[in-house]
Computed example of a mutant assay.
Amino acid sequence: MEGLFLPLLLMLVVAIPLIMGTRKQKRMMAQQQELQNSLAPGDRVMTTSGLYATVADTSDETTIDLEIADGVVTTWLRQAVREKINPVVDDESASDEEGDTSVVEESTVAEADEKETEAAKGPQVAPPLEHGKK
């Protein structure tokens, strides 16, 4: 009886972590599948590569269309969506919604004018890197 106890105990020590790991993996797969099925147009998501986007179309079973910028829609595999992102509410925007917008500072107007002129210039593009040239 004593000769059987040690091998049985060794098998239990090996089997329990394997079973627990399998259960955790199944639970994670079920959560990911639930996320994939719950995606709807307008949801903010993050892909596995770290790209933040808005869901544009979910009509296909294997792919999903994500809007990464205004008017720029790309097609991704559904498995590339890592998580759904909840919109973050700023303290400033929360105070603006309360009706505290009657007084506008001149510096805010000047900053807005600067941003408009920079946006009118277009995007700034860095010059290409020249690899291997010395």
Rank of each mutant, 00 (worst) to 15 (best):
D65H: 06
A53N: 01
S93H: 10
L12K: 06
E130G: 11
T101G: 06
K24E: 14
R27E: 12
K134I: 07
D91M: 06
T48R: 08
A126M: 09
E2R: 14
M1V: 11
M29T: 14
I85P: 00
D43V: 06
P127N: 08
Q25T: 15
R44V: 12
E106R: 13
Q79L: 15
L12C: 12
L129Q: 10
V125R: 00
E111W: 04
D70G: 05
A110K: 12
R44F: 09
M46D: 04
I16S: 10
A126Q: 14
V104N: 03
D70W: 03
P127I: 08
F5T: 15
L77I: 06
A119P: 05
Y52T: 11
S93K: 11
K84P: 03
K133W: 12
A56Y: 09
P41Q: 01
E130H: 15
S102T: 10
A30G: 08
A15N: 07
L10S: 13
E61A: 09
G50M: 00
P7G: 02
E67A: 01
D96S: 07
V88G: 06
K133V: 15
G99W: 04
T62Y: 13
D90F: 09
T74D: 08
P17I: 04
S59G: 03
S102D: 14
R23W: 11
E114Y: 03
L8P: 04
W76I: 02
V81P: 01
T117W: 06
D70K: 02
A112H: 12
T75S: 07
L8D: 09
V125Q: 00
G132M: 10
V109W: 05
M46N: 02
E83H: 03
A30K: 08
D70L: 02
L10V: 11
A15L: 07
R27G: 10
E130C: 13
P127A: 13
D90Q: 13
D91Y: 12
T101Y: 08
L39D: 02
V72W: 00
D100L: 09
E97W: 06
L12T: 09
K26E: 11
T58Y: 01
K121L: 01
V14S: 03
A53D: 01
S102Q: 13
R78N: 00
Q33H: 10
T101K: 04
E2Y: 12
E34C: 08
E97K: 07
T74N: 14
T101D: 08
H131S: 15
H131L: 13
D57F: 00
G132T: 06
E105K: 10
I85D: 01
E105L: 13
N86D: 14
D60W: 04
V89F: 04
Y52K: 05
V103T: 09
S102K: 12
N86C: 10
E114K: 05
Q31R: 13
Q31G: 14
Q25M: 13
P128N: 07
T22G: 15
R82D: 15
N37A: 12
G21L: 06
A30T: 11
E114D: 15
T101M: 04
L9T: 08
M29L: 15
Q32C: 05
